[in-house]
Amino acid sequence: MEIRTFDVLLEEAKKRGRKRLAVVFPEEVSLHAAILAQQAGIAAPVLVGPPDRIAELLQQAGVSAGDYEVVPAGDPVEACRIAVQLAHDDRVDVLLKGGAQTAQLLHAVLDKDTGIRASNVMSECTIYEDTRVRHSLLAVVDGGILVAPTLDEKVESIKNTVGVYHRLGYENPKVAVLAAVETITEKMPCTEDAAIITRMCERGQIKGCVVDGPLALDNAISPRAASIKGIGGEVAGVADILIVPDIEAGNLLGKSMTYFAGFTSAHVTIGARKPVLVPSRADDGQTKLMSVALGIVAYY
């Protein structure tokens, strides 16, 4: 059964019991996310950082320290190392970035010997609760990590995201490879990539989904727009996953969904053996909570 709302996503996360959520060098933003998840009953936080500082933060937040396990670490880099080690040893289930830099955390995650790398490419899966058009969960890939993805990176990010959607109950998610137009021209290399990726899926080189591209955004999510342009196929008008040409497009599309459409979002970094959450200061409480829920349901 496809999960189409965040309410159901949260319920599904709860069914999986409290997951051990490692917060890597906690500060206000990440601690807020951990507290919300703890209070919603989906996480058992493990705070990796300086015990004194953590105690102070917990007191400021007004929560009971007993609900929060602490693992000492002196600085952000050490916190990254320890948290990834815990994940590596299956002693935590989810990683949540705190005061450590994203690059520091990903470096530890991707380490060949001590890391928890799974896929060749790490990609950001941002999911929007579309309450207006598709009445479903729509993913935008990738508005946060892949700056100028190569063909291979686009393919890997699709595979990462399709894996998440299978776990969200979508058996055969529809993937639209977006461009400004639906025709292919040498002047717009992303349209050529889209044509190649579509054929790769047709040939079974990308499994468990249907891919079509290039598609303009309206062709991807509006059956009316698709039919006016005479675009058939299984994806036009009913896309679940939107693959963008580059980070600018992804970031702009995502933020317009948040601010102009008012859709709630959740985001998780995919490609490691455990979900990695990188909260933004701009994330509100609902986004932080749903991101934890998404990470849990995507992996467990």
């Binding site: 639906e182 050529e192 190649i196 579509t198 290039p214 005479g230």
Partner: peptide
Amino acid sequence: QEAAILTGMAVRKQ
């Protein structure tokens, strides 16, 4: 890859 691109163009009625 060019064969894939040309096929894409054909599918888009180009």
